[in-house]
């Protein structure tokens, strides 16, 4: 067996920490070297991995759909192709399953950037890749919250710089975070004008339990389990779209902007 390794010495420096003196010599080097190696340990590691890999591959290598785009996991952006995709498809799948007892349908889906754990490549999307994207066993839930809590939600979204939401709502935030009291007055007026009393938000049970400090979900008016895991919703959506002959296409539509 021959394993090629290339590793980059990104950085190489010498500090001098004698006493409290500043370093007397510091240098950045940028050398890369290649090792061709078949040392017993690596073979040993490969042999250890092999039986686990075979069993896993048999299940995880199933191609669910072809992606026409890359969906990189990106930090610090108000919206991402990846976040939009997952929030939109979650709402799509949940709406097929969720039958409201009070005639009020889901307003929108809110997830969190941290919960989407990897990028999706262009090309074949396997079941295994979806497990990497959504490794957690989180369930989709519908949380009914008061308009006061909804204002907290919007304030959170503003303060945090954006999280994945479904595309039927859009938020144009000012760059600077407005005072909570100020937003409260503003939104109360809007909600009253439209006679909105409560919101139904689709999210994961992790976030509904206050994960990522989404405390506005705590003590809600109502919480209902959709009956599907978020990961299974993604898998179901990919399979459905594939069956229709469609590919995954990325979309940025300005659903969250900061002016």
């Amino acid at each position: 067996m021959r394993i090629n390794i290339k590793y980059l010495f990104v950085f190489s420096l010498v500090f001098n920490l004698i006493g409290c003196q500043p370093p007397i010599y510091e240098k950045t080097a940028n050398n890369s070297i290649q090792i061709n190696s078949g040392t017993p340990e690596s073979v040993e590691a490969m042999l250890m991995i092999q039986p686990y890999k075979e069993k896993l591959d048999a299940e995880m290598n199933e191609v669910l759909i072809i992606s026409a785009d890359e969906f990189p996991k990106e930090r610090g952006k108000p919206e991402t192709k990846l976040g939009n995709l997952v929030a939109d498809l979650s709402l799509d799948i949940a709406n097929k399953i969720y039958k409201p007892t009070d005639n009020q349908f889901i307003d929108f889906c809110l997830l969190n950037n941290g919960g989407l754990r990897t990028s999706l490549p262009k090309g074949e999307i396997t079941r295994g890749k979806i497990f990497e994207l959504m490794p957690f066993e989180n369930e989709l839930v519908v949380v009914t919250i008061s308009k006061t809590k909804a204002i907290e939600l919007i304030h959170y979204l503003h303060k945090s710089g954006g999280h994945p939401i479904s595309g039927d709502f859009s938020f144009d935030f000012k760059k600077e975070v407005t005072d909570y009291k100020e937003s409260k007055e503003e939104f109360n007026k809007i909600f009253n004008d439209y006679d909105i009393k409560q919101f139904k938000i689709l999210t994961s049970d992790y976030l509904a339990n206050g994960g990522d400090k989404m405390n506005f979900f705590l003590n809600p008016i109502k919480i209902e389990f959709v009956g599907i895991k978020l990961r299974d919703a993604i898998i179901q959506y990919c399979k459905e779209q594939n069956k229709k002959g469609k590919q995954l296409v990325g979309k940025l539509d300005g659903r969250i902007t900061f002016e």
């Binding site: 290339k6 590793y7 980059l8 010495f9 190489s12 420096l13 010498v14 500090f15």
Partner: peptide, 10 residues
């Protein structure tokens, strides 16, 4: 004294 390297495995 200290030296540091961040080795990329690629």
């Amino acid at each position: 004294s200290v030296s540091y390297q961040n080795l990329r495995i690629q």
